[in-house]
C-alpha cells in the first residue's frame, strides 16, 4: 500500500505544491459540492461581476450530486461525477482562487494549464463508491440552489475523505502516466 497523506482545507499554495500525482490523500475540513448546473450559474455570476454563493478562495469543489438523505443520516450516497463536463467552467473558478477539485476521469487541457498556472490540484475520487465515501462526511449543509435538487451546492464537512492526486500543479498527469506505465503492446 502507498503511504496515505492527510491534508486540511482550505488549501494554501504550499500545501498544493507539496502534492504530486499518485499521492494517496485523506482530506479533512470543508468541501463544496457542485455539478454542471451549479457551475454554469456561478460562472454567469462572475460574468456579471456578482458575488458567488460561497468564497472559493483556497477551497475545494467536489463534482457530486448525492442521493436523497435518509432520515437519521448525514447524507445519501455521494461519489464523484464525470469531471470533463466541468472543463468549460473550472478555469474561471481557479482564476478567482479555487484551489482544488475532486471528480472522476481526466480533465481537459484548459484545466490542466490553469492548474499549473495558478497552483491548483485535481483529485480523483473513486467513481461508484458513493456508499463508502458517504462515511467520510460528518456534516452536510445546503448553501445554494436548492431548486436544483441533487445539483444544489452543499458545504460538506469531511474527515479523511479518500482521494488520489490525479493532476498536480507541476504538470503531472496520472491518467497519461498511469496508462503509459501499464500499457502492453
Amino acid at each position: 500500500m502507498t503511504q496515505k497523506k492527510s491534508i486540511k482545507t482550505p488549501l494554501t499554495d504550499e500545501a498544493v505544491m507539496s502534492l504530486k500525482v499518485g499521492d494517496d490523500i485523506l482530506i479533512t475540513g470543508e468541501i463544496y459540492t457542485a455539478r454542471d448546473a451549479a457551475h454554469k450559474r456561478m460562472v454567469e455570476l462572475l460574468d456579471k461581476g456578482e458575488k458567488l454563493p460561497f468564497d472559493v478562495k483556497g477551497q475545494i469543489i467536489y463534482f457530486a450530486g448525492p442521493t436523497p438523505t435518509k432520515p437519521g443520516q448525514v447524507i445519501g450516497s455521494v461519489g464523484p461525477t464525470t469531471s470533463t463536463r466541468m472543463n468549460a467552467y473550472s478555469p474561471r473558478l481557479i482564476e478567482v482562487g479555487l484551489k482544488g477539485m475532486i471528480g472522476k476521469g481526466e480533465m481537459g487541457p484548459e484545466v490542466v494549464a490553469k492548474i499549473r498556472e495558478k497552483k491548483a490540484v485535481y483529485f480523483a475520487a473513486t467513481g461508484g463508491a458513493g456508499a463508502l465515501i458517504a462515511k467520510a462526511i460528518i456534516k452536510n449543509e445546503l448553501i445554494a440552489y436548492e431548486e436544483l435538487g441533487a445539483e444544489a451546492i452543499r458545504k460538506l464537512t469531511v474527515k479523511d475523505f479518500p482521494a488520489i492526486v490525479a493532476l498536480d500543479c507541476h504538470g503531472g498527469n496520472l491518467y497519461k502516466e498511469g496508462m503509459a506505465k501499464y500499457e502492453k503492446k
Partner: peptide, 26 residues
C-alpha cells in the same frame, strides 16, 4: 493505485448491501 481502488469498490459493495444504501449516487 489500481488495487487500492478495487479495494474501495469492493468495500463499497459490502457497505451498500449491509446498509441497503445505494452503491452509487447515480
Amino acid at each position: 493505485v489500481g488495487r487500492g481502488i478495487l479495494d474501495q469498490v469492493l468495500d463499497n459493495a459490502r457497505i451498500a448491501r449491509t446498509e441497503m444504501a445505494p452503491m452509487c449516487q447515480d
